[in-house]
Amino acid sequence: MKKAILLESVSKKYEVGSSSLEVIKSLTFDVNENEFVCIVGPSGCGKTTLLRLVSGLEPPTSGRILIFGDPPDPRKQRFGVIFQEDSLLPWRTVIGNVKFGLELQGYKESEHEKIARTYIELVGLQGFENYYPHQISGGMKKRVAIARALAINPDLILMDEPFADLDAQTRSLMQRELLNIWSKLNKTVLFITHNVEEAVFLAQRVFVLTKRPSRVKQIINIDLPYPRARLSPPFISYRERILTAFHEELEGI
């Protein structure tokens, strides 16, 4: 079976003036179809670069990336990317934003309305279709971004610290709802975070990255049934294991 995501000794260097900065170095991992994988690593370790590589926004300097067997290209594959920053078009309403991906992916115009409404309902925003982004809360904006990403029926969902800017309560609510959606839709999710607890709560597997240049330091399978109780002893022991690996990297900086 083809892997949903496959990275083979991927490196990424940026030329900064005369020197070069190696952000990612011979990174190898794979993600199975319908799997939920979290990537944690110290800040500045190239997590966002990794997401840009996987979504085909930038090519790797060396190595190979395959998405279901093909190199990533947003014009051929469907990526549902959810950014940390607010990525809604402020001049479009909620439903207009959800339709944006459908328009770009060449869905028939007659279908836009129905599909958009389905996913707005999925993320619990029915009744807010005609609100502008500045009229809704940060959590609701994230839901719109999620609805927009899901509406195009993506091959992959890529999330770059999507809940980092939210308050603690909203964040944990969004995490639970994301898991609900994931279990309903059966999608492959690559979720980047620096929040270890979030990773243990969400992921089937957690990849801990080293500091820059990033490699995979450790892969941890989280063998806990969903929904997970954050205060249960196994949850805490997973969290501690990952934190230990994580802190070794932090101390090295």
Binding site: K76, V81, Q105
Partner: peptide, 23 residues
Amino acid sequence: TLIQMAKTFGADNKKIIARVIFP
């Protein structure tokens, strides 16, 4: 971020200009 978002949906330069940069 908006430009990148449009790119991840497969928008080409023409569409990015018409649907993101211009509005």
